[in-house]
Design a protein around this nucleic acid. Structure first.
Lengths: 246, 246
DNA sequence: TTGACGCAATATGCATGCAATTTTTGGCGA
DNA sequence: TCGCCAAAAATTGCATGCATATTGCGTCAA
C-alpha cells in the first residue's frame, strides 16, 4: 500500500474525470469523505494535490470547486504539447538516439500497424493501441535526453483530453476511427524515420502537425459523440463544456 | 489573510530556495512545524503542494526530502522555457497584439533602458530591472492568447534558476552584469519589433536565442560566484528574488 | 411585497491525539 | 571488532475535535 493518500487522490481524480460532479460545482469535504470512506483530512490533502494538477480551484474559506475546461483551453494545451514534443523530437534527432531505443520504437510501430488491421473492433484492441501510442510518444521524449521535458509534458497532459492517451473513439463511425489511427501510425513512421536520419527540423514539424491533427480529430469525434448522446460516459469528456463563465 | 496555508507554503518555498536545507536532506515535520510556528497538519499540506511543484520528493512512510537539482536539469528547464516562449512569441506575432499591450511593452522597454544607464549599482535598481524583465516576458505570453501557455511556463519556472526572474548577478564583475542586461534589453527590442511586424518565425527564433543566452549567463555567473565563495547547494543564495509573484 | 438584519445551520481551517511504521540504540554472541 | 536482533525512540499517516467563516432562512420593518 503506497500510502492511502495516493489511492484516495487517484480515486478522486477518476471521479472528477468521469464528470460525476458538474463543472463549477463545490466539492464539500464531508460528502466526499463519506463517499470515499476516509477522513476529511485525507480528502483535503487529495484535493490540494488535484488543485495543483489543475482539476480543482480553491477559494479561501470556500473550499474547492470543480474546474471548468473550455474547448479552447484543451486546444491550447494540445498546441503546447505539440510544441514540447517537437522540441523533444528535434533534440532526439540532433543528438541521435541509441539503437536500443530505435528497436523499441520500431517494435511499437510494428505492433500498432498489425493492430489497426484488425479494425479496432473490441475495447481491448483500442486500449492496446492507446498504450502503444503513449509509449511511442514517451519514447521520443526519452530520446531527447532532457530531464525537464518529461515532467513538463506530463503536466500539460493533465488537462483533460490533452494527453496523447486521451483518444476519443467515436464508435458510431468506426471507419473514421480506423482511418484516423492509420494516419497516426503513418505519422509515427515518418517521425521515427526523421529522428533516425538526424533530421531535427523535419521531425519537429512532423510531430507538431501530428499533434495538431490529433487535436482536430478529438474535436470532430467529440462533437459527433455529443450530438449522438448528450452525456457521454467516456472519461474526461463531461468536463468539457462550452461557455466559460469563469 | 488568504488562508494561513498559502503563507506557510510560500515561507517554506523560500526557505527551500534559499538552500537552507541540503539537497537530499529529510524534512522532519515536527522540526519544520516548530520553526514555522504552526501545526504538523499545515506543514504536511504545504509539503504536499511543494512536492507537486517539484521542490520536494516524497517517499511513503518516510516523509519528504529536499529534491536535488543538477545543472543539467536547470539547463534543460531553460531550454523548455525558451521553446514555450517561442511558441508564445510566434502566436502573438501571427495573431497580432492589441495596441494597449504594445504600449505597455514599449513602456517596459523604455524604463529598462533608462535603468541600465544608471549602472545597476544598487539592489533596488537590480530588483526593478528583474521586475521589468518578468513583466516583459509575461506580456509576450499574454499576447499569445493561449490560456494553457501561462500555467505551463509558470510550472517549468518553478525549477530553481529556470525563471526569467531568477537572474544571477555576479557583483564581483559589475561591468559584465551591465553588459548582459544591456544585451537582454536589445533582445527585447528586437523581439517586440518582430511581433509588432507580425514576423512569427523571427520572433520565435529571437526569443529562443534570448533564453539560451540567459541560461549561459546564469551558468557563467554562477560558476564565477561559486569560485569566489564555495557554495554548498545549487538552489538559492546568488539568486536575487523579489517577494511572491501573484 | 420587498429589503435588511440577525441567528442558526453548515462548511471550512487548523490543531491535537493515536496508531502504525521506520529508525536508532543497546546488548549479545561469534 | 563486527554483525545481528530486539526493544525503545522517533517519525510519519490518519482521524477526530474545536474554532472561525460562510450561507441560508426566518423575522421584522418600511
Amino acid at each position: 500500500m503506497a500510502t492511502q493518500l495516493d489511492q484516495i487522490t487517484q480515486n478522486l481524480r477518476e471521479i472528477l474525470l468521469e464528470g460525476e460532479y458538474e463543472p463549477g460545482e463545490a466539492l464539500r469535504e464531508v460528502a466526499v469523505a463519506e463517499r470515499l470512506g476516509v477522513s476529511r483530512t485525507l480528502v483535503r490533502l487529495a484535493m490540494g494535490a488535484l488543485e495543483q494538477e489543475g482539476l480543482l480551484n480553491r477559494a479561501p474559506n470556500k473550499g474547492f470547486r470543480v474546474r471548468l475546461f473550455t474547448i479552447d483551453e484543451v486546444a491550447g494545451a494540445i498546441e503546447v504539447r505539440g510544441e514540447l514534443e517537437a522540441l523533444a523530437a528535434r533534440n532526439a534527432a540532433e543528438k541521435g538516439i541509441p539503437k536500443t531505443l530505435q528497436d523499441r520504437l520500431r517494435a511499437i510501430l510494428s505492433e500498432a500497424e498489425v493492430l489497426v488491421e484488425t479494425g479496432l473492433g473490441d475495447l481491448e484492441a483500442r486500449t492496446r493501441w492507446i498504450d502503444l501510442n503513449t509509449a511511442f510518444h514517451a519514447g521520443i521524449v526519452e530520446g531527447a535526453g532532457n530531464q525537464s521535458l518529461g515532467p513538463a509534458i506530463d503536466h500539460i497532459c493533465r488537462i483533460p483530453l490533452a494527453s496523447p492517451r486521451a483518444i476519443v473513439f467515436d464508435r458510431t463511425q468506426p471507419d473514421r476511427n480506423v482511418e484516423q489511427v492509420r494516419a497516426a501510425n503513418a505519422d509515427h513512421v515518418q517521425i521515427l524515420d526523421a529522428i533516425v536520419n538526424r533530421q531535427g527540423m523535419r521531425a519537429a514539424c512532423l510531430i507538431r502537425e501530428h499533434a495538431y491533427r490529433s487535436g482536430r480529430n478529438k474535436r470532430t469525434n467529440f462533437d459527433a459523440l455529443q450530438q449522438a448522446r448528450p452525456l457521454p460516459a467516456l472519461p474526461g469528456l463531461a468536463l468539457v463544456r462550452r461557455g466559460s463563465s469563469n
